[in-house]
């Protein structure tokens, strides 16, 4: 299991980092924390390299390293990493620049199997997409963003499962809202829900929504299959069958104290591009964390 946690600034990234590291630790996953800095105009890129090289001779960090350092200290303070093995704290001098807009800080020894801190510059979707394609992550964890189209671009172009940490409060007790229907993505979503529920030791609300009162055979079977999986895994769950618009119903049921888990849409990319999809609309409308499983 490989997890990518995308952070942006010291001000807003703490919840993302917190929940991301909890998941990583519980699933014993190899984790990479990435800070995607602003895109640098090509006219100026070499001048900025020059300035950065000079900064090093002054013993100052290049921009972005401070965000990683903050993340490192946050992990240290919250006992996600064990600094005894590293010795001298944040090893900023081990920044390795691969020259392709990706720089990495190598960390040795931590309480989770493998932790990487990396720095990228550019358009966030392009950089994340490239990182995921090259390094093959299973789950991308990212904070909610005010940027227009961000949710669309994430759902459409990011190849891994996505966890959008929308208004997450680490002191709150969450439940999982697992949305199942007859679509092919459901099976994977259920497996994910089981792992997350076991890891956090939390209950599941299993929901199936139909536009009218009639629930098709496929939906019923999907719900039964999911119940069987949850039962076998020893997870407490409640089954809901609800009538209404799927997106509205899921968002309303979730409120702010659930983590929504649902499968990715399996419609063709073109349809999704023009018509949108259920997962996308759920992300846009919801006021709680959402996991879209691919």
């Amino acid at each position: 299991m490989k997890i990518l946690i995308a952070i942006s600034s010291k001000e807003y990234s703490a919840p993302t980092l917190d929940v991301g590291m909890k998941i990583a630790r519980l699933l014993n996953a190899s984790t990479t924390i990435v800070d995607v800095g602003e895109k640098i105009n090509e006219f100026s890129i070499k001048d900025i390299n020059l300035a950065n090289e000079l900064m090093e001779t002054w013993d100052m960090d290049r921009p972005g390293v401070d965000v990683l350092e903050w993340a490192y200290k946050y992990l240290e303070k919250n006992n996600f990493i064990n600094t005894k093995h590293i010795g001298e704290g944040f090893p900023k001098h081990s920044l390795i620049d691969s020259g392709t807009g990706r720089a990495e800080i190598l960390l040795k020894g931590s309480t989770i199997s493998n932790l990487n801190l990396i720095l990228r510059n550019g358009d966030i979707i392009e950089e994340l997409r490239n990182e995921i394609q090259v390094h093959d992550y299973d789950l991308t964890i990212i904070g909610g963003s005010g940027r227009r189209n961000m949710a669309h671009d994430l759902v459409q172009y990011i190849d891994s499962s996505i966890f959008i940490v929308n208004s997450f409060d680490s002191n709150k007790k969450y439940k999982i809202l697992l949305a199942v229907d007859d679509s092919p993505g459901t099976g994977k979503a259920v497996k994910y829900a089981v792992r997350v529920a076991q890891a956090f030791d939390i209950n599941v609300d299993l929901i199936t929504v139909s536009k009218d009162n009639h629930f098709g055979e496929g939906c019923k079977r999907a719900s039964e299959k999911s119940q069987k999986m949850l039962r076998r895994s020893g997870i407490d769950y409640i089954v809901h069958f609800k009538k209404g618009n799927p997106v509205d119903t899921i968002v309303k049921t979730a409120g702010s104290n659930h983590i929504i888990i649902m499968g990715a849409s399996t419609q063709s990319p073109l349809t999704k591009f023009f018509m949108g999809s259920k997962p996308l609309n759920v992300i846009k409308a919801s006021d709680c964390p959402v996991i879209i499983v691919k």
Partner: peptide, 15 residues
């Protein structure tokens, strides 16, 4: 704007 000149981009890159 940020794109206008390299010096503006240099100070912008500090964040």
């Amino acid at each position: 704007t940020v794109v206008a000149s390299p010096t503006i981009m240099i100070i912008h890159s500090t964040g």
